[in-house]
Amino acid sequence: MSMRRYYEFVIEALIFASGIASIIFVLLIFIFLLKEGLMLFEHVGVFEFLFGKYWYPISEPPRLGILPLILGSLWVTFGATVISVPLGIACAIFIGEIAPGWLKEVLKAGVELLAAIPSIVLGFIGLVTLVPMVKKVFGLPTGLTAISGSIMLAFMAMPTIVSIMEDALNAVPRGYREGSIAMGATQWQTIRRIVLPSASSGIIAAVMLGIGRVVGETMAVMMITGNAAVIPMSFFAPVRTMTATIAAEMGETVQGSEHYFALFAIGIVLFAITFVINLLADFALHGKQIRT
């Protein structure tokens, strides 16, 4: 009996340790980004890093301003959001409210399929199909532009937006719809006046998480945006995002160099951005209070 007690005590200790593992990993990620990233600021000021206009990491001395990269990320993210939010919301409404049973299942499977295709594959396909198309349609010297990245990322954000928003629509009680229909409203009036307002916090969360997905996307964006580290002036010019910079340059840095630390510092910025986005999305979904 005492043997069994001991065994159960050990198991329950493991369960508790695993329970708080998520907290530990978030902290570890934060600590290790800081550990390497903060070293940069012995050489470069925070202001100079965040708002410096020039990213010349291998010049002598290196210039490590990430303003072009932040703007690159913002630019691409903005474009992707403009495309994906209306389309994603429309698609979620169609799947969640309008499509009949069988079609709904088919469409949902399609969205899941999109989510299952790896970023690298979409990047590759974008590189060989979308990029030449953009070049031709807009008559540009190169198709490796912000607009290509935005289109690509819009697609990659779609599964997140559609599935979370569809959950939000599903959570609206059936009675709300029936009440409205019973008063003579059309299905669309019901959706617009009753269902969408009731699901608004879920829709906000869906959009936020979609944006979070876009900001953090790396491989596809690296392959098709051209990666020019200059302050972007147009959707039709090459840009370089923060994520792409880390992925493309980490392999060439010397461990312990300013450049190496700077890439970790970019990681801190990315981590902070997605942390805030996810926190806001979760508060939109669950509220700030502890559920009691």
Binding site: G19, I20, S22, I23, F25, V26, L28, I29, F32, L33, K35, E36, S119, L209, G212, V215, G216, E217, T218, T243, I246, A247, M250, L263, F264, G267, L270, F271, T274, F275, I277, N278, L279, A281, D282, H286, I290, R291
Partner: peptide
Amino acid sequence: TRIIELAIVNLAGVPSVVYGLFGLGL
């Protein structure tokens, strides 16, 4: 529990390239 849930949500949202940095560092 609320903090654990938030940690899970945030882990799910960390960009994949930041995981790469974390793996490299740790």
